[in-house]
């Protein structure tokens, strides 16, 4: 259990997907103008990461691995299968949420299709492969990574809401400022590298 908490802390703070690997930057910059929408997208990312990560783990090990069903190394099919899983899971999640929780659907609705092309989702699955996590570790990594991404986008959205009232040079307004802020947040998050996850 301690090992799982360790991975959660590490993926949420120390190796933050958005701030230290720059994953999901496109939607991170596009949807961080207000806190409300940022929270919606952040929740959807946690949700989809937590679902797709274990599924992709199963596919990678049981279907594509050398000891899987076909007994051959099929890892060159990894990209295609991963992205197909992500696209179809997002579609499925969208349909289920729409049917059973229309209020959640209304708040997440427009963000769900965006998530298919959010690099944080595919990047999470690829990192899981390169770090050779086992099943429960990949679940912890999925939730932790999603949580870290959520934190990053909500924080930048809050800062961007406030910075609207500042006198920023015109050419730096909007996008340029968002980049600078992300860089500063990245530096702040580097301070968390000193955390020893084993202490938890």
């Amino acid at each position: 259990m301690g090992e799982l908490v360790n991975i959660f802390i590490k993926s949420a703070f120390i190796e933050n997907l958005a701030l230290s690997y720059f994953l999901g930057m496109c939607s991170y910059l596009a949807v961080s103008k207000t806190v409300k929408t940022a929270v919606g997208l952040g929740l959807a990312v946690i949700f989809v990461l937590a679902i797709t990560m274990p599924i992709n783990w199963v596919i990678n090990v049981w279907l594509l691995g050398e000891n899987g069903i076909f007994q051959t190394d099929l890892t060159f099919l990894r990209f295609i299968l991963f992205i197909a899983v992500i696209a179809s899971m997002v579609q499925l999640v969208e349909m289920v949420v729409e049917k059973y929780s229309p209020s959640l659907y209304n708040s997440l609705g427009i963000f769900l299709p965006l998530i298919t092309v959010n690099c944080a989702i595919l990047g999470g699955s690829l990192f899981m492969v390169s770090k050779e996590y086992n099943f429960s570790e990949s679940v912890a990594f999925g939730i932790g990574g999603g949580f870290g991404w959520f934190l990053a986008i909500v924080a930048i959205a809050a800062i961007r809401e406030k910075i609207k009232y500042s006198a920023v040079p015109p050419a730096l307004r909007g996008l340029g400022m968002a980049f600078l802020l992300t860089g500063l947040m990245g530096m702040a998050f580097m301070g968390l590298m000193g955390i020893d996850p084993a202490a938890f």
């Binding site: 720059f22 050419a171 340029g176 980049f179 500063l184 990245g186 580097m190």
Partner: peptide, 15 residues
């Protein structure tokens, strides 16, 4: 380090 990429791009956008 990674934050510098952000700063460099911000400066490019600014210019």
């Amino acid at each position: 380090l990674f934050p510098s990429a952000m700063f460099v791009i911000a400066v490019i956008i600014w210019a």
